[in-house]
Computed example of a mutant assay.
Amino acid sequence: MDRGLGKRARQCWLVAHVASSVGWFGVAASQLALKIIAHTTDSDAVRHTDHLTAQVFDRYLMIPLVLVALGTGLVLSLCTKWGLLRHYWVTAKFVLTIALMIADTIWMGGWVAEAVEYTASGGASAAPGYRDTLAHLLAGSVVNLVAILAMVVLSVVKPFGRTSRGRRVVRRVRPA
Rank of each mutant, 00 (worst) to 15 (best):
residue 59 R to T: 15
residue 74 L to G: 14
residue 32 L to S: 05
residue 6 G to E: 02
residue 87 H to I: 01
residue 163 T to A: 04
residue 56 V to S: 11
residue 69 A to W: 00
residue 67 L to Q: 02
residue 158 K to M: 02
residue 170 V to T: 10
residue 52 L to S: 05
residue 123 G to I: 04
residue 38 A to W: 14
residue 28 A to Q: 03
residue 41 T to M: 12
residue 99 A to V: 14
residue 22 V to L: 15
residue 89 W to P: 01
residue 22 V to P: 09
residue 16 A to Q: 06
residue 157 V to G: 05
residue 114 E to G: 07
residue 116 V to G: 07
residue 52 L to E: 10
residue 139 A to K: 04
residue 62 M to Q: 14
residue 20 S to D: 10
residue 148 I to A: 02
residue 154 L to I: 04
residue 58 D to R: 01
residue 137 L to A: 12
residue 70 L to Y: 12
residue 171 R to L: 08
residue 120 A to K: 14
residue 9 A to M: 13
residue 17 H to Q: 11
residue 4 G to Q: 03
residue 172 R to M: 11
residue 172 R to I: 00
residue 119 T to R: 12
residue 144 N to G: 02
residue 150 A to C: 14
residue 76 L to M: 06
residue 79 C to Q: 07
residue 10 R to K: 15
residue 40 T to V: 02
residue 61 L to Q: 12
residue 90 V to P: 00
residue 101 M to D: 14
residue 121 S to F: 07
residue 154 L to G: 11
residue 138 L to Q: 08
residue 108 M to Q: 08
residue 33 A to I: 09
residue 8 R to N: 06
residue 107 W to Y: 15
residue 64 P to Q: 07
residue 51 H to I: 04
residue 161 G to F: 01
residue 168 R to S: 08
residue 174 R to Y: 09
residue 65 L to F: 12
residue 11 Q to G: 00
residue 55 Q to R: 12
residue 99 A to R: 09
residue 81 K to I: 00
residue 77 S to C: 02
residue 107 W to Q: 09
residue 94 F to D: 02
residue 120 A to T: 13
residue 62 M to I: 03
residue 18 V to C: 05
residue 105 T to L: 13
residue 83 G to Q: 00
residue 91 T to I: 02
